[in-house]
Amino acid sequence: MPTNYTISTYHKLGLIDELDLSKVPNFSQKTENPRFTKEGRIDGKTYAVPKNWGTTGFATNTSKLKAKLTSWKDFFEIVQTEADGRGMVHDYQLTTIGSALVSLGYGFNSIKPEELAKAEELLIKVKPHLFAINSDYQPAMRATDAWLTMCWTNDGAQLNRDMPEISYTLGKDGGEIWTDYYAIPKDAPNKAAGYALLNYLMDPNNAVKEHLANGAPTTDSRVIALLPKEITSNKIVYPDEASLTPLEFGAAVTLTDPGRAELMARFKSA
């Protein structure tokens, strides 16, 4: 299940095969939103088909925190003040460094050393105030150990569904938008079963069940048509187009850049 920014690397390393779409008749290119499918195609060939898309924002327990947060700048400020000891960042360099960069007015995908140095300075200043550096933030948010965390759409939707006091916010200063895909590894031992599963998952009647359980939005308009009104009108799952405008897709180099990996290690060991 590769995310958008890994597909070109997997292709370059020869880890995934071109998909034989004749074996996935339930997949329909026409009803897919091209914004979320283009990174599955390389040189006109389809290597991956989308599972769902989403964003990286933050979840706030509004019964614990009074501050109204609207940006990553707010996030990194409140984490050091009102949410001291109660904030979480991902154990994932792409989103943690990316969001820190955004809060400073830089691009999510920056690999410029001077911008990364500023992000590092911020993260190291914030670290003593954090509750945890962990991408498994749902347990801590549900137990109210943490009051504020970096958060992906699907987790935000699940948390808000069960605890309405937990809100989900997209940074108005930027952040990440992503698509998760399905791909088949080149040396998969049972490709026929892989295609059968893929075709099953691409059937809108099955995809809608996955959507309802997981919470992340779909890329396929056939699935949207099957969704109940309360999901399609849920602003966590389907935010206004305007709030998506400042968001950026992660880039392949952002993930593989050794400078960012070392920055993350220095942050975690500081």
Binding site: F131, A132, N134, A261, M264, A265
Partner: peptide
């Protein structure tokens, strides 16, 4: 340290996990 320390205290074990699984160095 990962589960009870919130991943904020970094030991060699944690460094190894990151190097092999995240930054793939």
């Amino acid at each position: 340290p990962q589960l009870l320390g919130g991943g904020k205290v970094f030991f060699i074990g944690n460094a190894l996990v990151d190097l092999f699984l995240q930054s793939r160095n």
